[in-house]
Computed example of a mutant assay.
Amino acid sequence: MNVSTHVEDRGLVESPRWHEGKLWFADWMAGEILTLGSQGDTHVMARAKAPPLSFDFSVDGRMLIVASGEQWLLRREKSGEVKPFADLGGTEWNEIVVDGRGNAYVNGAELVLVTPDGKVQAQAEGFAFPNGMAVTPDNSVLIVAESHGRCLTAFDIAADGSLSRRRVWANLGTGTPDGICMDESGAVWYADVPNQRCVRVREGGAVLDEVILDRGAFACMLGGPTRQTLYITAANWFGMARMGEMQGSGQVLSVPVPVPGAGWPLAATSVVS
Results as ranks from 00 to 15, higher is better:
P51D: 12
S270D: 15
V207E: 09
K78C: 15
V97W: 01
F85N: 11
I212Q: 12
G31N: 04
A26Q: 02
V114N: 00
D156C: 12
T91G: 13
S185N: 11
A235K: 05
P258T: 01
R167F: 10
M246Q: 07
E203F: 00
L74W: 11
L53H: 07
G173S: 09
R47M: 12
W24D: 08
K83D: 11
G40Q: 08
T229M: 11
C181Y: 01
G179Y: 04
V135N: 10
G21C: 14
D183F: 02
F127L: 09
L36M: 09
P51M: 13
G216L: 09
R47C: 12
R227I: 00
G216A: 05
L222Q: 06
W264R: 13
V13W: 07
S147K: 04
C198K: 03
L172R: 08
C151P: 02
L142Y: 10
D41T: 15
I232V: 10
D209Y: 06
S273D: 14
M243W: 11
L12R: 01
P225M: 03
T35Q: 11
K49I: 03
E32W: 04
V82S: 06
A234T: 04
Q39F: 06
G239E: 10
K119Q: 15
M221Q: 12
G11N: 01
P265C: 04
S79H: 10
H6G: 04
V66L: 13
A235Y: 01
T42I: 14
R227F: 01
C220R: 03
C220G: 01
P225N: 06
P51C: 12
N2V: 14
S68D: 10
H148Y: 13
T226M: 03
W72C: 03
G61L: 11
D160F: 13
S273R: 13
R165I: 05
G263V: 01
R62N: 13
E146R: 01
